[in-house]
């Protein structure tokens, strides 16, 4: 075989090539800067340090959920039960905490530490059930997690029976509503989740398997990767992240009640996808999710700072999300064309 036909190494690091490979990250960044510019121009109250903390606080819970969801979507699966699992876990931790006398929920007060452990077990158990349904039984994750959404919502309903609980263990209260130094604790926790998620996805063997399973499930299988185990693991991770978000969310909101997390399902999916992670798996990651969170957070927060019909805002929000997705698709195409 001849060797004179060697092509120039493709791995060279030109600025253009670098940009091309990063286009999926650049597109949501452009969207984000565009939104910041617009809102700053329209509302002086938007671009302030205080408001930055508001944005961060507002996306923290979504961020914790989206961390787990990023793992799931990278394997080309989906988890529709995240908000429900968060709700059930948040209610569970309140259920195991001594409530004030006027709360008429038949609860089981336990020491705070135990309540937290039990609540974590609840979300892990729900995640495990999902994992078994998807991997061993073979139910598509879209359907299985839809069932889990209902199951977890049912658990919530049974535990609170239409009531509202308020008390959570002190540790949860601190992490959800307190501060660490000058920072809101929940923002720090969300940052930690995202950081650990990023490290796991980028630097560990498991993280590589997540990408490879999403990139080509069959090829991963033929390479000896235990694909079902990886998928089971990401579903449990997602449930765990949701559960933690649920617990801290109860503290953040100051109450535990049914359906209080419902908006977070679409927000979390939107954050992951707007950030540029592919629903077909294998491409994207936590940096994308972080960008998506900011796009979403800035959008939600910014719209509150400008003076327009509040009913119109919902429509505007939808249109801007659509625009962001369109930009992503074109960036993707541009990237393919460069290659």
């Amino acid at each position: 075989m001849k060797i004179e036909a060697a092509e120039p190494a493709v791995g060279r690091r030109g600025a253009g090539a670098w940009l091309a490979t990063r286009l999926t990250n650049v597109a949501p960044l452009v969207t984000l800067l565009f939104l910041i510019a617009i809102f700053s121009a329209m509302a002086p109250s938007f671009s302030t340090v205080d408001n930055l903390w508001n944005v961060l606080r507002q996306v923290a819970i979504t961020g914790i959920i989206a961390t787990g969801l990023t793992f799931v979507i990278l394997t080309a699966e989906i988890d529709l039960s995240v908000a429900s699992v968060a709700n059930a876990t948040g209610i569970a931790v309140a259920f195991f905490t001594l409530q004030e006398a006027y709360v008429t929920i038949a609860n089981v007060p336990l020491p705070g530490f135990l309540a937290i452990v039990l609540a974590i077990l609840v979300c892990l158990a729900l995640g495990a059930v999902t994992a078994v349904g998807v991997t061993l039984i073979g139910i598509p994750s879209f359907i299985m997690t839809l069932a889990m959404l209902q199951i977890a919502a049912g658990i919530c309903a049974l535990l609170v029976r239409g009531q509202i609980a308020y008390a959570v263990p002190p540790a949860v209260k601190w992490l959800g509503a307190g501060t660490i130094g000058p920072f809101p604790a929940i923002v720090v926790v969300a940052a930690l989740f995202l950081l650990v998620g990023h490290l796991v996805l980028t630097y560990t063997r498991f993280g590589r398997y997540v990408y490879m399973v999403g990139g080509n499930r069959e090829a991963a299988e033929y390479s000896g990767v235990n694909v079902k185990l990886v998928i089971a693991a990401v579903l449990v991770i997602s449930a765990f992240c949701s559960g933690m978000a649920g617990m801290l969310g109860v503290a953040y909101f100051g109450s535990a009640q049914q359906n209080q997390f419902d908006d977070y399902l679409l927000d979390a999916i939107a954050a992951v996808v707007v950030g540029g992670t592919s629903l077909f798996g294998g491409r994207g990651g936590i940096p994308n999710t972080i960008l998506g969170l900011f796009v979403l957070g800035v959008l939600n927060n910014g719209l509150d700072h400008i003076d327009i019909d509040s009913f119109l805002k919902i429509l505007i929000r939808g249109l801007i999300l659509l625009l962001a997705l369109i930009i992503n698709v074109y960036a993707q195409k541009l990237r393919e064309a460069r290659a």
Binding site: G207, R208, Y209, G215, N216, A219, A220, S223
Partner: peptide, 26 residues
């Protein structure tokens, strides 16, 4: 059935030996 089209060559080769050359971290 054998290729990770969007991954670099080296990841395509190392996928089957990751547990040999790495423990937790790559």
């Amino acid at each position: 059935a054998m290729l990770f089209a969007h991954e670099p060559v080296y990841k395509n080769i190392s996928i089957s030996i990751l547990e040999r050359i790495s423990r937790l971290f790559l």
